[in-house]
């Protein structure tokens, strides 16, 4: 009767059906009674109102029965949920890293992927991490959801029971491109998974302090490293190259050097690249020290 996309579907969906069923029952009965009374006891029929006395037994009954019903609903809600926190010891571990605005998945051996590929019928533990603000890791097809909290070890897990692609949505509002922060879980056969994992590239160890600073201060949220335009100009290959500036209508060409980078960080509206409006970027003066600016500049020099 229940979808087998994950091991949690039955617990969640059965709780859903039961609670919805009880709710619909009460909605129909209570609405029906209301409509019935309004018609039967309408003042136009001319009968005066009967002043009914309160009945304590009736009150106690309709306190007790709902209390029993809600405690039952609490119970099935808890029973359907608690397995989501009890991870099997032999689960394969993947770390899901959320950042503004993408998901990345880290597999054992420092291998990175944009999508989460997993073998069917095997338990997967998803360690949840965030590089900046709160994000949500939500897979509606599997009935799982848990928040990615910076510097906190949160987790979720699942056993996929069906081959196919399952949407991952970010469900905690995280700014400008929250609606675009999506990814996929691809459930494949064990053989396909093993081949995929073997071919997955190892992430180059990037010890650049400059890059860490760009990530920590959220620069990457608006300036890409790969040439694509996000909110501000991309950082790729800028150092030593010419830029067209347009400040207050005055156009000027300038070579990107240490001084330009420092001004852009401390007084972003002073020298704006042509085609970008004022007031988009806030000043980081006092937030990023001069030493840190040098480290960032060093990184940008190498980002060809």
């Amino acid at each position: 009767m229940f979808d087998n996309s994950s091991n949690f579907v039955q617990g969640v969906d059965s709780a859903f059906l039961i609670i919805t069923g009880i709710s619909v029952f009460f909605l129909v009965v209570l609405t029906g009674l209301m409509i019935y009374f309004v018609i039967k006891y309408n003042r136009k029929k001319g009968k005066p109102a009967v002043q009914i006395k309160d009945n304590s037994l009736l009150e106690i009954t309709w306190i007790t029965i709902p209390m029993i019903l809600v405690l039952y609903m609490f119970y099935i809600g808890w029973e359907g949920f608690i397995p989501m926190r009890n991870v099997p010891k032999d689960a394969m571990e993947v770390t899901a890293i959320g950042s503004m605005w993408k998901f990345e998945f880290e597999y054992k051996g420092n291998k990175m992927s944009d999508t989460m590929v997993v073998p069917i019928n095997k338990a997967v533990k998803v360690n949840l991490a965030s590089k900046d603000v709160l994000h949500g890791f939500s897979v509606p097809g599997f009935r799982i959801k848990e928040d990615m909290v910076p510097q906190k070890d949160n987790y979720t897990w699942f056993i996929p029971g069906k081959l196919g692609d399952f949407d991952i949505y970010c469900t905690v509002y995280c700014g400008l491109n929250h609606s675009y922060m999506m990814s996929l879980i691809k459930v494949v056969s064990q053989e396909e998974f093993d081949m995929w994992l073997k071919a997955l590239p190892v992430k180059k160890a990037d010890n650049s302090l400059g890059l860490k600073l760009l990530e920590k201060n959220g620069c990457i949220a608006c300036h890409s490293l790969d040439g694509s335009k996000v909110v501000g100009p991309s950082f790729k290959g800028i150092y030593g190259n010419m830029r067209n500036l347009n400040t207050n209508g005055i156009k000027k060409d300038i070579k990107v050097d240490d001084a330009y980078i420092k001004t852009s960080i401390n007084e972003p509206d002073a020298q704006i690249v042509d085609g970008y409006p004022k007031g988009l970027m806030k000043s980081y003066k006092g937030l990023i020290s001069d030493t840190e600016i040098e480290q960032i500049t060093q990184y940008l020099k190498e980002l060809k």
């Binding site: 617990g11 709780a15 859903f16 809600g77 808890w78 949920f81 509606p140 009935r143 469900t171």
Partner: peptide, 14 residues
């Protein structure tokens, strides 16, 4: 009630 129950909440939260 669906939101108060933890199992169903996980599906519909946010």
């Amino acid at each position: 009630l669906l939101l108060g129950s933890v199992a169903t909440n996980v599906q519909v939260h946010d």
